[in-house]
Design a protein around this nucleic acid. Structure first.
Lengths: 242, 242
DNA sequence: CGGTTAGTTGAGTGCATTCAATCCCAGTGG
DNA sequence: CCACTGGGATTGAATGCACTCAACTAACCG
């Protein structure tokens, strides 16, 4: 799932308890400091559909996803939910809250493992190491930009274009996380994609069929898809959403 | 438009060149430090529809809105646009970019004035004054939460509910900025509201009519509306969007 | 085997869109 | 003064896209 990356400048450090590759907010740190940070972490395993935390929970830990996929979402009182983003191994969540409580829901979309850090200790660590604070800010800016692009997609595009754009965006995220993109794996359910795109699952299914018919994608099975080059060219964020 | 706020702990400091009330990221600063920061600013005036900056522009200044209303948006190649947020006096923009270029478009929705700061100098200032850095991070977190709530609205609600929620959210933002909410002023055009909510302007107009028919709002004129209590209770972010 | 879960497809409905007409108002010039 | 104009908002009629409800398939598991 997460292939080895070779030829890095310093040895790829692993959290003493985490199987996945290095914490992306730690890239700027040298080996000793990465080790110091990772030693703070505690590994946890989450079955599919289980909540890491819910909006309103008092926030304790900050989570780094180490395997599987996790969804950040907002739940409405009537049961509808909006999935804001899918998190991949290396991503962190639970750090962007105000006050004392979580603002979002966070749940495992597949079986997932995380490495969790005590919030106060990570904060103290980032106060000490200026580069970590900068990396956290950078992570926030990137999440903001991802959300903005996605909002434009949900607000402006037709169902099929929305799905096409989603697949391209996901492919780009996989590339950034050194995850294979051909075929592209879709570990989340159709319902999850629907809740992410602001559609019903039947509409998502029809959109998949349309893309297949137009030969813009090729489905290996329900959870593996190969994107055609022309799709990537037309619907990637840069090309399509400015 | 921006009534005086009385009884503050320290004197309400004004930027030497800015007519509006104090920079909200500066609330934690004492008087001397606020003054030091504000002295860096340069005032500018923008006619309606003019761009403060466009996505892709190399970023220079960071803007604080001092009067009027400004829209952050994402433009698509075919002309459609998604307005991400409306900025009120006291809000800042242009600080959440990666690399060398702006990620969003920013344009004046009404005639507006801004106080602009050199990016490098503000960054240096915030490195020096720890509380300012924290306030900037806080502003980013709040924008992220606003966008998340809005995304849930665009993704999940019907046109009328979307408009109702928008009006309530706007009212809350006005309160937080010490702007009058009864009546609530709507300085932006119907097109702007449509581009914010992911609807067509005709649909927005029909949604206004529906809310009027159900006596959930009362229109003074095209740009002034009074929200009924029951509307606020049902469609404010906390009540409706978790 | 039957039961469950996930996905696809069909038929019909409803809501938002498109296109067009009308209204209102402010500004302008005859 | 009134007629004309243009921008913005509203409303009507018809279309189309996404939704709802339902049937059906496939895979998995007891």
């Amino acid at each position: 799932m997460v292939p080895e990356i070779g030829g890095s400048m310093s040895p790829v450090l692993r959290c003493t308890q985490c199987p996945a590759k290095s914490f992306n907010i730690c890239r700027p740190l040298d080996y000793d400091r990465q080790k110091e940070l990772f030693d703070l972490g505690v590994q946890q395993r989450w079955p599919r559909r289980q909540a890491l935390f819910r909006a309103g929970d008092p926030h304790g830990a900050i989570f780094k996803v180490t395997s599987g996929m996790v969804a950040l979402s907002k739940q409405m009182p009537d049961g509808r939910r909006q999935i804001l983003d899918f998190l991949l191994p290396g991503d962190i969540c639970g750090f962007l809250e105000t006050g004392e409580a979580h603002a979002f829901d966070c749940e495992a979309v597949t079986e997932a493992t995380t490495c969790s850090f005590d919030r106060a200790r990570l904060q103290a660590f980032s106060a000490l190491h200026h580069e970590v604070a900068a990396a956290i800010r950078q992570a926030m800016v990137e999440r903001l930009q991802r959300m903005a692009t996605h909002m434009a997609s949900v607000g402006q595009l037709s169902s099929t274009a929305r799905l096409a754009n989603f697949l391209c965006t996901l492919s780009q995220a996989y590339s950034a996380h050194d995850i294979q993109t051909r075929p592209l794996s879709l570990p989340m359910k159709r319902t999850d994609i629907a809740d992410h795109l602001g559609l019903r699952l039947e509409t998502v299914s029809r959109a998949f069929s349309k893309l297949k018919d137009r030969q813009l994608i090729d489905m290996v099975d329900d959870e593996r898809v190969v994107l055609d080059q022309s799709l990537v060219a037309r619907f990637s964020s840069e090309a399509y959403l400015g």
